[in-house]
Design a protein around this nucleic acid. Structure first.
Length: 822
DNA sequence: GCAGTGTGGTAG
DNA sequence: ATCGCTACCACACTGC
């Protein structure tokens, strides 16, 4: 951009078509005001150079001053409030430029329409100033229009500093509003973090676009090309989207200077950099500090912040153009990228489309450019796109598929091939393979040996310009392709906890976040995965990146829920207990991810669901039963239980309500224990102990220095979930025989007593509820057994009294909804 | 074989 | 300071 013409902002510049005589009279006319404001905005094409600038504007100003004098004589009240002050208005303000003009002139001030010579203007009025202008106007007194309004109202000239637009006039880099950092312990952490996370936005935008695509599909079934049909694929992608949009929004010329989009100054990720910056070797994903060091001495790297709203707006306009463009399919890849499909087109037809789209997009996005790759398959379009960048288009037809085309493409240019695979491939043979022309020589078998069956096939086809079956789904089964199959949340930044309770709360918030989304989708989940990032041994407590995760060991564990659910209690409890099973000391945690893996549609009408009578089911031979059980489970069909209410005796005592959460858990758990044939307590104990054996070391660490509360052990178990499992297995194993052994029972009571003595009554309650629900569900078949009656006795005479004794304490705790802990 | 689990990789 | 998300595929491994 060749210097700024401030004159452009003057409503009078280039406005010779407006009769000047009537100008002042029409000042109060809102319609005209808008009209003029609109005109001044449209002055993209600059005619300024046609004029002899000095003379033209000198005359203009003289005429203007004359008119102002006339205006003051007619409307002014003699006020000299702004005497000696001359203002210039930049950009849109409220009140508008014309009103400010009136106000200043009527009060004895000067109004200047352009900044042709320095020193003539005493103040600049602006409501907000693009970054570029901030730099240019740094030497002026810049203040908000309220200075004028308030001064007139007060009848005296108020200090302009109080209305200064910029707190620090020397500030050249974008100054983002300083918001206090919200720690991960704060309820607003997620919101705050996500609002600033580019990757979160990227992910969210992507799923929104996919969802929108599916909805569009429902409204108006799209024509899907037949598999034998010849198609033309356009792969369209913004050039350095974030950088371009941010640059345009801040008045920078994307071609003039190296620009990066980022949050910070040192160890902050570069989300996007323009091609000017890439000339110096700067790349997306690099840290800013590294990038700055790559700049030649004296050359400045411009850092811009994110403007997610603007990104969205530009993307919307982009997609609008694509939707208006008569493609048969517009497939969303991301916020700034789409694949469009048509039937066969000739080369020149493709060219016309590419040019049209590129021009249209540029027009509606303040000059942002898209590149387009066009070819007969997804992979060809994609490779052509790679070659077209930046700011170009490339159409490959069969005769364009020559050695030159392939030799200019790198291995990593292939879709689905990232750094890791590229290394594997290039190192597989000697001399190392460097481009796709060389890769074409590689035999299909060696490729498969090198990168695996599927990927080997995919690459073999790709370097021959063909799509593999998996990629084709995007075109031929788009609805299935874009259908959401899982839902998850990942946080690997800012995670610094001290206690397990803080983590519990965090898990609760994450779960709530997911459940809100889940319900919005009208879905339920039946499998959960918890993945955590744990600081690697010997790594610094604080990594170089502020609040970053540093080097971590990832650990994941998943759980099946017998029945698909969207209940907060069930899911949060499960995740919290899974977290405990991963044995991560609270202070070592650096990241958490929760996934809902299997999504099922919420049944609109439960009654219509098939069900199986529990009585019939229970009486089946055990091998048939387990097979059917698995099948029913898979289809999420409930076994209908018609258990008689035989437990009123203790129901009334304390547990009036049986939350569905607990019931679901026990049902699920019964289902699991049905599969287990071992029924003796000691055997089960052995089994669980064996499973846990390998974790003993990690565990002792966990409980050593980092746990605040001393653990309470039962049967050498410290993890409450495991203890519960143990107890439940115990109940199950003894219910149909003679009931619990006296010795075991004494140990159990001791454990309960210690729980109760250390204020862990919710845990006692939980055990109590679980046992009671279990008995209820089992009563139909085992109520005649000694074991069953023994267990009822235990519940009534041993467990409940402990709860009732502490009823008061317990209820206070319960209010806090603390379910259980270590 | 088969199904389920945890891990790794990729993309935007 | 700094905002290192998230969906989805493929594969190795395990247990039956």
């Amino acid at each position: 951009m060749s210097g700024y013409n401030y004159e452009e902002d003057s409503p009078l510049a280039n406005k010779s078509n407006i009769p000047e005589k009537s100008f002042l009279e029409s000042l109060s006319d809102d319609g005209l005001l808008e009209y003029i404001a609109g005109l001044s905005q449209e002055q993209g094409e600059d005619h300024g150079e046609q004029y002899s600038r000095g003379d033209y504007f000198h005359d203009k100003q003289k005429r203007q001053e004359k008119q102002d004098r006339e205006f003051r004589e007619r409307y002014g009240n003699g006020s000299e409030l702004f005497s000696g002050i001359s203002i210039y208005v930049n950009g849109f303000t409220k009140p508008g430029r014309l009103q400010l003009h009136e106000m200043v002139v009527a009060n004895g001030g000067k109004f200047v329409h352009f900044l042709s010579c320095k020193g003539r203007v005493s103040h600049i009025i602006a409501s907000n100033l693009p970054l570029k202008k901030r730099v240019e106007l740094a030497s002026y007194k810049i203040c908000r229009p309220e200075w004028i309004v308030d001064s007139i109202e007060e009848g005296k000239l108020l200090p302009w500093q109080d209305y200064a637009l910029l707190s620090d006039q020397d500030e050249i880099q974008p100054k983002l509003p300083q918001t206090a950092i919200v720690s991960c312990k704060h309820p607003d952490f997620l919101k705050q973090f996500f609002s600033k996370s580019r990757l979160h936005h990227l992910s969210n935008w992507k799923s929104d676009l996919r969802a929108e695509f599916c909805e569009r599909f429902l409204e108006k079934p799209l024509r899907i090309p037949g598999k034998s049909e010849v198609v033309t694929v356009f792969h369209i992608d913004f050039d350095c989207f974030f950088a371009s949009v941010s640059a345009a929004a801040n008045g920078f010329d994307i071609h003039a200077e190296p620009i990066v989009v980022c949050h910070g100054t040192k160890n902050s990720d570069i989300a996007s950099c323009n091609y000017e910056a890439r000339r110096y070797g700067i790349r997306n994903g690099m840290w800013v500090g590294t990038a700055v060091r790559m700049m030649p001495r004296g050359k400045k790297l411009v850092r811009l912040g994110y403007d997610f709203e603007q990104f969205e707006l530009m993307s919307k306009r982009f997609y609008q153009i694509l939707h208006d463009s008569q493609f048969e399919l517009v497939l969303p890849i991301s916020i700034d990228e789409a694949v469009c499909v048509t039937g066969y087109l000739t080369h020149s037809e493709c060219e016309l489309i590419c040019r049209g789209i590129r021009e249209n997009v540029s027009n509606v996005t303040n000059g942002c450019t898209v590149s387009i790759g066009c070819g007969g398959s997804l992979v060809l379009a994609r490779l052509a796109l790679k070659r077209s960048k930046p700011d170009g288009y490339q159409i490959v037809d069969c005769d364009g598929l020559d050695d030159v085309f392939w030799s200019h493409l790198k291995i990593e240019d292939l879709p689905g091939v990232g750094h890791s695979l590229a290394c594997k491939i290039s190192e597989y043979s000697y001399p190392p393979i460097g481009n796709l022309l060389e890769l074409r020589q590689m035999a299909q078998d060696s490729l498969r040996r090198c990168v695996g069956e599927k990927m080997g096939n995919k690459i073999y086809l790709a370097v021959r310009g063909k799509d593999d079956e998996e990629s084709c789904k995007m075109i031929y089964e788009p609805r299935q392709f874009f259908q959401r199959k899982s839902l998850s949340i990942d946080i690997n930044w800012g995670i610094r906890f001290d206690t397990i309770y803080e983590i519990d709360e965090f898990i609760d918030r994450c779960t709530q976040y997911l459940i809100d989304k889940l319900r919005e989708l009208d879905k339920k989940t039946s499998q959960l995965t918890l993945k955590i990032m744990k600081r690697s041994k010997d790594e610094a407590i604080e990594p170089p990146k502020y609040l970053g995760m540093g080097k971590c060991d990832p650990v994941a564990r998943s759980t099946r829920l017998g029945v698909p659910t969207d209940e907060f209690g069930v899911i949060a409890t499960e995740i919290k207990s899974t977290f405990r099973s991963l044995c991560c000391p609270p202070r070592e945690l650096r990241g958490i991810a929760i996934q809902f893996n299997k999504l099922e549609k919420t049944a609109s009408n439960q009654a219509k669901l098939p069900f199986v009578d529990a009585k019939i089911y229970q009486n089946l031979p055990s091998d048939v039963k387990s097979e059917i059980g698995r099948e029913l489970n898979k289809r999420s069909i409930n076994i209908r239980r018609t258990a008689p209410k035989r437990i009123n005796s203790y129901q009334e005592q304390f547990i009036q309500e049986l939350p569905t959460q607990i019931r679901g858990e026990v049902e699920n758990e019964i289902h699991i224990t049905n599969k287990v044939n071992k029924t003796k307590f000691d055997e089960i104990k052995e089994q669980v102990a064996k499973r846990q054996n390998e974790k003993v070391n990690a565990k002792s660490h966990f409980l050593g220095e980092n746990t605040i509360l001393l653990p309470i052990k039962f049967q050498n178990q410290t993890n409450f979930k495991k203890i519960i499992q143990l107890v439940m297995n115990w109940v199950d194993g003894t219910i149909r025989s003679q009931g619990p052994h006296e010795k075991d029972l004494r140990l159990f009571e001791k454990y309960l007593q210690r729980l109760s003595d250390t204020n862990r009554l919710p845990l006692v309650l939980r055990i109590c509820k679980l046992i009671s629900v279990k008995l209820e569900l089992r009563s139909e078949f085992f109520s005649h057994c000694n074991g069953f009656q023994e267990w009822e006795k235990v519940l009534l005479q041993m467990i409940l009294p402990k709860l009732n004794k502490n009823k008061h304490t317990f209820q206070t705790v319960r209010k806090l909804d603390i379910d259980f802990d270590t």
